[in-house]
Simulated assay, not measured.
Amino acid sequence: MAINKKSLSVRVAGQAAGELFNEQNEFIFRYDSDAAQQDFVSLTMPVRGRDYSHSALPPLFEMHLPEGYLLSVLQRHFAKLNGADDLSLLKLLAPSVRGRVHYQTNTDTTQPLELTDLLSPAAGLFDELVARFALHSPVSGVQPKVLAQIQDKATLCIEDYIVKAWGPDYPQLALNEYWCMRVLKAAGITVPEFYLSDDGALFIMKRFDFTSSGQWLGFEDMCVLAAKSRQQKYEGSYEQLAKTIANFVSPAHKVTALQQFFKMLVLNNRLQNGDAHLKNFGLLYEDIYNIWLAPAFDVVSTTAYIKNDVSALTLMGSRKWWARKHLLTFGVQHCALTQAQANALYDECEQAMQRVATQIQQALVTEEVADKQQILTHLLSCLTPDQIIE
């Protein structure tokens, strides 16, 4: 069978794995005949002789596509030349996809920045980053963001960082995310390395799928694992996420993963993060035998902008914000916790919120910018003792 020109060679950890192409309105992925079992492209797509056929781009490959702001930039500048369909967009970004699954040798010659350039940004830096890195930014999410290469001054190693900005609809979103992530870190939840620029304009987060020994880890978000498209990221429940974690995570990591997920859920409820959807949770792995929960990321208090915002996914059949006793029930019923464990983990979250609330109060004493004051005051209200009435 002849493969049309809209095809893409897929590689896993440097090895040829298969071919992705479009034929008769079907997206087809075909493993090479000599692909080894460890060359699987997704935990949900093991190596086999039969093609994988989808009516849309398979979720694993769709995960590499941008959304929102970056998508509009790429479509505006390149759709006329390259086409606007998902496979054309993926082909456009393919040379810059870096990870366990990639498409061809990266030949990027873009000059890396230094972290200090981002922490003390000049005016207009984010626009410059977009112009410089848009074609090198296969990252999902609707928020304005780019994937930038940063060089460590001491080691001269070049690493990938996700740099996020914000627009007038969501003032001080970087500040919002920075403090929310500080709460999760204080609660003992694994988070990526992250920073806030001195002027609060940029939230900077290091990629977490690359090890210090130079190995790319596999990463799959919950949309991929649930076989859903990015348009379906708000379809599902936190019960289903807990079940996915229990089904996929390796036995050695399962207890920790479910405990971490429970604390993530507690804090997403308390911070009122209405954007904790399927794409904002994921798994990391070295191979099929070593799979664990990915660090927490993309946590913001959305009720700072949408007063009556609700949960991204359902919990106990509702999108409301749940108080302690119901979250404890969730932990026992779906995260394999005892009542004592659930209470202890919730207490860890409470203690973290109290510590960070004190830090926010101190920051408010000297803060003079009105919209920063507003965000910090809102976060402070979220971190006060649980007052939700059932």
Rank of each mutant, 00 (worst) to 15 (best):
L81R: 09
A187G: 08
V255N: 11
L71M: 06
V356S: 00
Y69N: 13
S88P: 01
F281H: 14
A276V: 03
Q151G: 10
H277I: 06
S381I: 00
C349H: 09
Q231S: 14
Q361C: 10
N106E: 07
D221R: 05
T116K: 14
Q354S: 10
T338I: 09
D117N: 12
L8T: 09
N176A: 12
T44D: 10
F126C: 09
E114G: 13
N280H: 07
Q361V: 07
Q339M: 00
I3F: 13
N290Q: 11
F297M: 06
D86L: 12
A84P: 08
A227P: 00
V249G: 03
T302Y: 09
Q15E: 14
C157W: 08
K243S: 11
V266E: 10
V224D: 01
Q111Y: 08
Q351T: 15
L217P: 11
T155K: 04
F281P: 02
S137Q: 05
R48K: 13
T107Y: 07
D152Y: 02
A294L: 03
T110Y: 06
V299C: 13
G49Q: 15
V365P: 00
G236I: 08
C382Y: 00
T314E: 15
Q362P: 01
L271V: 01
A363C: 10
E220Y: 07
F40N: 05
L376G: 04
A94N: 08
M264Y: 14
E367R: 01
Y31K: 06
D386Q: 15
P144T: 07
L147T: 04
K254L: 13
S53P: 00
F261D: 03
W179H: 12
W322C: 09
A56M: 08
S137L: 06
A252H: 15
K6H: 07
Y69Q: 03
Y238N: 09
G14S: 09
M316H: 14
L156R: 13
Q38D: 15
K307D: 04
N22A: 08
F210N: 03
A187K: 02
F261Q: 03
A363L: 11
Y346G: 05
C157T: 14
N247Y: 10
S120R: 10
E239L: 07
S318A: 13
P58K: 00
L328F: 05
A35F: 11
L147D: 04
A134C: 14
N280L: 03
C335Y: 10
Q351P: 07
I150E: 01
S311W: 06
L20E: 02
K243G: 05
I189G: 04
A336N: 08
A370E: 11
H326Q: 15
V191P: 01
Y103G: 06
M353G: 00
D86S: 15
S9R: 15
L175S: 14
V224F: 01
G14E: 08
